[in-house]
Each structure stands twice: as C-alpha cells, then as structure tokens.
Design a protein around this nucleic acid. Structure first.
Lengths: 351, 351
DNA sequence: TTGAAAGCGCTAACAC
DNA sequence: GTGTTAGCGCTTTCAA
C-alpha cells in the first residue's frame, strides 16, 4: 500500500494546531463553529478570528464521521445533452454552493450504468440526492433508502409516492398548447412523444388530449419519438409528415424534439413554418428564442423550481417531508404557430 | 447542536461488524480491500464474499482521514451553457466513475464567485482538480497549491507553466481554416474572437493570421465578441457585417459564436450563406451538424482528449508530472463555406 | 463556560 | 499472515 505522501503533506491547520495556538482545548475551538453551542461570545470571536488568519476550516470529512452529515448533495443527471439540463444544473450547483453545500455529480453513460454510478455516490453518504430527469430502478431506489439519503426528483414524478418531486404543471402546459392551437383554427393535431415511460411525456399528452376532447377536436395522433433528442425529433418528423393526412399542427414533448422536427419539415418536405405547419415545444430552452428557431413553447419556471428544490434540500436534511410541488408553465408565443391557410370556401367574415 | 439522528441511523455495516461476523480482526478485513497487502488469498476471498452479502464497502470519508486520498475529483466548469462543455462533462464523469472516482462539481454563477466555490471544494480535499474552460485567479491557484491538489486544465493553457493541460491544437486548427478559406478564393477575411483573454482565442487567431500572412492575403479583421455565446456572436455579426467593407469569410472563435453570427447575417442583412458569406466555427458541437446550421468547423477530438485527461488524473494522483498535451483537430467541411461569387471580369479559366 | 476523554470508521506500524 | 494498537481530525458526552 502506498503510504501517504508525508513530504508534501499539506501544512493544513487542524483543530489541534489552532487549539494549541490559542491555548484552548480542541473542544472549545470546535464549539466556536456551531451556533447552538454554549460558548462565551468572546471566546468564539477569538477563535474565529484566529481561524481566519491561519486559514483553518473544519475538515468536513472528519466531521461527517461524527455528525453523520456530509454537506454533500448527490446530483444524478441523466441527459446533459438536452440543453435544458445544463441550464438547470448550472443554477442548481450555484444555489447549493451559496448555502455551503457541495454537489457530487453522477451521470449514466457508456461506461457506467446508473446503478453502478449510484453505488459509487452512496459511499460518500450524500445528505440528499437530487435526480435530474432521471428515473431509478427499484433496486437503486432501495439502495438509496437503505443508505438513508432522501430523494428529490426534478422534472419527474416518481412512481414511488414516498419521494419528493418538483415539476412543472405539465398537464396544464399541454392543455394551454391545445387551446392555443385550436383557437388558431387547427383541427388535425399531433403529439410527438419523447421517452414514452416518463411522467412528463404522459402528463403533457394528458393535458393536450383532454382539451382536444373538450373542444370537440379529433383526438390527436401520437407519434412516438422514443427519446428526447434532436435526432429523434427529426426522425419522428420524417414519419409523421410523410403520412397521408399530414397534421396541421404538432405539439412536441420538448423543445429539442421540436427543433429536430422543424428541420425535418423544412429539409425533407420543404414546408414553411408556420404557414404549412404549426409547431410547439416545451421547456423554453435558450435556443428556442433564437431567430433561427423562434419556437412557440411552454416555459418552465426553472429559477423558481430550482430555488424551491434547494429549499427542499434543507427540509429533507431535517427529515421533513414536504409534498410534491408543481409550478405553472407559461405559453410563450413566437414564430412557429399561425392559423392554417384557408382552404375551400372562406369562412364568413364576422369581425 | 443537532444530534445525529440515531433513530434512522443507517444500519450501515462497518469494518467492525464485518470483522466480528467473520471472527477476524478489523485489520484483516481492511487488508482484503487493498491489492498490495499481505493477506492469504483465501482470507481475502472470504472477506470479499461476506462483504458482498452484507453490503459492506469501506467508508471513503473515514479512509481518507488516514490515506489522505479521497477519490474525489473536483471539476470546475465555467460555462455549461456552451453545449461543448456538457458534452465534455458527460464523458468525463462517465470515465471517472468507471475508474472508481467521483466528481465534485463546482460552477461559478450569480450567487457564488469562483474563488468562494473553490474554497468550498478544497475542503473536501479532492485528489485532483480539473478545470473545464476555467481560468483561475492567482489567489485561487495558490489556494490549490497549498491544498496540494494538482490541477489539470482542459481547453485552456494556464499562464502558470507548472500545471498540466490538455488542449486541441488551436494554432493548427486556425491555420487549417485560413488555408481552406484562401483556397476557396476568399481575400477579405475576418475573425470573431470570444473571450479575449483566454488561450483558445489567442491561439486560434495566431494560426489563422499566420497563414494569411504566408499566403499573401490581407491581414484579417478581428472583431471582438467579448464572450463565447450565441448572443455575443449575433451582436458581433451585426457590427461586422454592417461595416463598409464586409468580409467575404469569417472564422468564429467557436461554434456557438458562429451560429449567432449566421443568424445575424440572415436576419439582419438578408445574406445567404455560403453564397454571400462563408462562415467557419470551432469545436464541432452536436448542433453544428444539424441541417439548420450545417456548419463547417474544426472538430476537437473530445473523446481522446477526455480519455487522456482521465489518465492524467491517475498520473497526477501518483505525483507524476506529464507535459501538457495537445491533440490535433480536424476540419469538417459542411455547408457554410463556398467560393466567393465572381465579380467583375471572370478570372482566366485554366482547368 | 470550559477541558478531558472517548470514539466516529478506518488504515498502518509493529509485533507475533 | 494475522492481531494489537495507535491515531487520522473532528465532535460530544461528562465532569469540573
């Protein structure tokens, strides 16, 4: 076994060093770093002052041995290639850092399965684990429960009703899209589903389809893209728009699907958007507002959602169990939706 | 002070438990988990088997107290909104996880400065710290040195010649772009710089300008976008293309700048690309190959670069000091570059 | 209000 | 090849 490199041993200050320096016991020094302890105000001041000078900070690794709390938040990111998640991750880590929490990131990729990666993470005893667009095998969920780390899902409703989740109101979002498209006068609608087995896919469809039914519009066709990616959107576009009765408007499971589908519409079928086809996405990623896309979409209130999730982290660490929470989205009208061209007899003009 | 939540105390198995269960000493159990120790092969087998059954894994936090190694790799990501970095980060964490290393992620954002975030990270004593497109204040670099964490820069050449860096050959990349554009017949070239103070910006320019000089083409105009973002590219496009002598071809500091600039060219000036303007990027992010962009660009060999960086992590942890390493990029020809339209007298036909 | 002492979970000398 | 012991850096009883 390699022995620790004593030569370059960090001249790291420890409690002992600081205690000796101050002529106090290590216990007193330690107490200075906790609010709820009995220590003379003046002693604390002294300790903190000298600690600052010497650059002493309690070692969280050693501390965790006793307190059982690591100040580590595990973040499991399933799909960083969808630009929505880097946006979320950036704000999330920033906010967590601001409250003195560190992010341990795990991803599932070609080399490691989600379950293996999670096992690795759990060794570090994260106080809380946040799942970004990730779903867990029941074995993995079990492992988390045994390890005692509360789970917070972002953008997913877990099947397990015990977990905490923060999501956008996907049902209402889907409904708003349907209302918008029907108001414009579209009758042949379609939905492009991403991963079929996740809550966002199902809920957005539910809201969309429900309004179609209420408004007496034919039930929308559902094209399954299989996953949330540009390529999947493009392929779905090829299938959907090549069909005999092309839809007049399509609601895509998220923005990146919508962008893929629009590229297919233009390149493979020479369609003009929105004249020949209306398209709506979901998320409002940065790219959606670029002139080259100008995508009408449902904006998720990312900032609020993340801030709330960070509050949940605190609550979860205190073993509180808040209910799952759902934030309203906002339909953002841009350039990819318009009324269908009039065909046959023009409708009576009544305005 | 809150006392550890004994009620829900994880029934986590410890060395002691396992040792008692097996009727061995804790030392023996511990030895089973290290290759370079003297332990009977059969004993090791027994220990590992029972450990598997009971779900025992040594607590890395406790272990680190003695070994001074945490198996934590700090990753500092400066700009996750540029899609290049999520691509890199995904592969990086995946590879690190595969060799049993965990990623602690820090970002600089509105709430926390880079230096504060780094301080937070260093408390956890990462074995190595990887900087993704990040530059460090000299105070921060000092802090890292004092904390004894080796630094690996990805996509940046640090000023400090002590650090290790893995980069793409930006000079050669810039040169290849210039050669391509000049071969096509362009004479009025421009460069759009991202952050002016980083090595990639400077090196790409150097390679680009050097070839112009060699080939006897007028020194390219340099437009400073200030940062590597879509918006900055768009704004730079507005300034650059609105000028009196519009360039025939522009080399952008990276793909996302190029995409912004192209949107400006089309929307603000009604230009057709590549007929009226040739555009080249750098990185070859996924988006560059989408039909809506079809961007000619220099591909960074991300996979090789990351795999190499992961090897460096191992080397750095062993206190070796490899030299900084530079991988060749590849010019990928797509649809945004073409010969300029002939103006005035057609050149003599000689083919 | 403070200090002495025990111990978190683990590894590494050193003896056997 | 294995067990005993000490101790990593820290917090937390308990007694003073």
């Amino acid at each position: 076994m390699r022995k620790p490199d004593r030569s370059s041993t960090s001249l790291r200050v420890t409690v002992k060093d600081l205690a000796r320096d101050l002529g106090m016991s290590t216990a007193t020094v330690s107490r200075a770093f906790y609010d709820e302890t009995t220590i003379a105000a003046n002693t604390r001041r002294l300790v903190l002052k000298r600690a600052g000078e010497l650059g002493y900070r309690p070692n969280p690794l050693a501390r965790s041995l006793i307190t059982k709390r690591t100040k580590i938040v595990g973040v499991v990111a399933a799909d960083l290639v969808n630009p929505f998640y880097p946006e979320v991750l950036t704000r999330l880590t920033d906010r967590l850092q601001a409250v003195d929490l560190n992010v341990m990131l795990i991803t599932a990729g070609p080399m490691t399965s989600m379950d293996d990666a999670l096992t690795l993470l759990l060794q570090y005893r994260p106080d809380v684990t946040i799942l970004l667009a990730a779903t867990l095998s029941s074995a993995a969920a079990d492992a988390c429960r045994r390890a005692g780390t509360p789970l917070i899902f972002i953008n997913r409703h877990p099947a397990d009703e015990n977990s905490v989740a923060v999501t956008c109101d996907n049902v209402a979002g889907g409904a708003a899209v349907a209302t918008h498209l029907i108001d414009l006068g579209h009758a042949r609608l379609a939905y492009v589903a991403g991963r079929p087995d996740v809550s966002t896919t199902v809920e957005r469809w539910n809201g969309f389809a429900a309004v179609c039914e209420t408004r007496g519009v034919a039930s929308p066709f559902c094209e399954n893209a299989g996953t949330f990616s540009y390529e999947a959107g493009y392929a779905a576009g090829v299938r959907l728009l090549g069909a005999a009765a092309r839809p007049q408007a399509v609601f895509c499971g998220n923005d990146i699907l919508a962008i893929g589908l629009m590229d297919a519409a233009r390149r493979e079928f020479g369609l003009d958007i929105p004249r020949d086809l209306s398209v709506v996405g979901f998320d409002d990623i940065g790219m959606a507002s670029w002139p080259s896309h100008a995508l009408t979409t449902v904006r998720q209130p990312v900032d609020q959602m993340i801030d709330f999730a960070v509050d949940l982290v605190g609550a979860a660490a205190r073993s509180e169990r808040p209910k799952l929470t759902c934030f309203p989205g906002t339909l953002i009208l841009r350039g990819t939706t318009a009324a269908p061209p009039r065909t046959g007899a023009a409708p009576p003009v009544n305005a």
